[in-house]
């Protein structure tokens, strides 16, 4: 693994339903530290599966995958890796409805040794960064779709991950709100110098990235 490659994937294969569905069929991929990558491809081509492999939410059957220097095929407990290196932004914000906005942002810090006041301070700092400091004590159900997604972004960043994985982060939003979220992600990417991998269906969104990857039938299609 070279110094600047934060993600190195070779011949990665993942099947579902006892091998009947080949979701990933030999992925080869290298992503440099600090890069902004967008992934495109038809529905069912394996984009989400690939993102889940990078974020260690699931394990592949074949191939090698190293992320932030960690061999994901060989490490037994991957929760610490997820906690320290990865920040997920999903299509659905997936906020916990009975907790305040602030408390939702604090959630990832429970696995760290951060003290309560420091947790609060950090969460507020990130809410400020996404422009929602004044809504900290509100319930997420009282927020608009775009605001909720901004909370989810704050939650993804709170443990200072090295990689942000965003799976259609604007998919559930109207285009205007979606643009706000994209601009926020882009500015956070450059400000925090994180690596960002984003799945999207919109070509104009994909163009904001440093590089576009096309996935087809579980493979990276280099011809496009």
């Amino acid at each position: 693994m070279t110094e600047e490659n934060v993600i190195e994937i070779h011949n990665l294969q993942k099947t579902y339903d006892k091998g009947k569905i080949k979701a990933l069929n030999g992925i080869d991929l290298e992503i440099k530290k600090g890069e902004f990558i967008s992934i495109m491809g038809p529905s069912g081509s394996g984009k989400s599966t690939l993102l889940n492999m990078i974020g260690a939410l699931d394990r592949a059957e074949e191939g090698t995958i190293k992320v932030a220097g960690i061999d994901l095929m060989k490490t037994r407990d991957l929760s610490e890796f997820r906690s320290q290196e990865i920040g997920f932004v999903f299509q659905m914000h997936n906020l916990i409805p009975n907790l305040s906005v602030l408390e939702n942002v604090e959630i990832p810090m429970y696995e760290t040794r951060i003290k309560s006041e420091e947790m609060r301070r950090r969460a507020l700092e990130l809410l400020e960064a996404v422009g929602l400091k004044d809504k900290a004590d509100k319930n997420p159900t009282k927020l608009s779709g775009g605001e909720r997604q901004r909370v989810a972004i704050a939650r993804a960043l709170v443990n200072h991950p090295s990689i942000i994985l965003a799976d259609e982060p604007t998919g559930a939003l109207d285009s205007k709100t979606g643009d706000v979220i994209l601009n926020l992600l882009k500015s956070l990417h450059s400000k925090k110098q994180v690596t960002m991998v984003m799945v999207t269906h919109e070509p104009y969104v994909a163009k904001m990235a440093d590089r576009i990857l096309h996935v087809l039938d579980g493979k990276i299609n280099n011809s496009s």
Binding site: L57, R82, I86, I107, P108
Partner: peptide
Amino acid sequence: GVLKAVGWK
């Protein structure tokens, strides 16, 4: 699922 994704053991 989210709690696991954010690194909860």
